[in-house]
């Protein structure tokens, strides 16, 4: 009934390798950019600027980098930023949940529009869910 063939395994491996390559193109450059930000002091400026707003979600100022790279680029960029920063597990969790709702907007909003839902409406729904859950988790998580 349930069968596993070499062909399936090969096809899966190919997809996996392809995905990994796509990731490499985003994760590695993001990690480099964040490392440069950190060394040059730009990170500190961004962190200080966003700290009060990020506090709403139980996040430190640094997490703004993660949220922005996720919202505007994609989740792999966000993952790259997380790896290059030193966030607590609580912060990683909150960022992850917030970004689950709202990410890759530049690519995905036009896709939603094509599929018959207005961009502005989808944007509000996704950002709303993201901010609401972020706030909730910031309050609830220990």
């Amino acid at each position: 009934m349930f069968e596993v063939t070499g062909k399936m395994v090969w096809k899966g491996t190919k997809t996996g390798l392809h995905t990994t390559w796509e990731l490499a193109k985003v994760v590695v450059p993001t990690a480099i950019v964040v490392a440069v930000f950190r060394a040059s002091g730009i990170l500190d400026i961004i962190t200080a600027f966003f700290a009060p707003y990020m506090g709403l979600f139980g996040l430190s100022g640094e997490a703004a980098i993660v949220l922005f790279s996720g919202y505007f680029v994609n989740l792999y960029a966000a993952a790259g930023s997380i790896m290059a920063l030193s966030l607590t597990l609580k912060e990683i969790t909150i960022c992850a949940v917030m970004l689950g709702f709202c990410h890759s907007l530049l690519v995905e909003l036009p896709i939603s529009q094509k599929a018959g839902s207005p961009m502005g409406y989808i944007f509000l729904v996704r950002l709303g869910c993201s901010l609401a859950m972020g706030w909730l988790l910031g309050v609830v998580l220990p």
Binding site: V4, M8, V9, K11, G12, T13, T15, G16, L17, T19, T20, L23, A24, V27, V28, P29, T30, A31, I32, A35, Y76, A79, G80, M83, A84
Partner: peptide
Amino acid sequence: QGLKGLWTIALIVIPLMIVLEV
């Protein structure tokens, strides 16, 4: 740092894609 992260992800993504395909 990026490569290290990539490796962690690859170790999961590739087996996952095989499982999905099956």
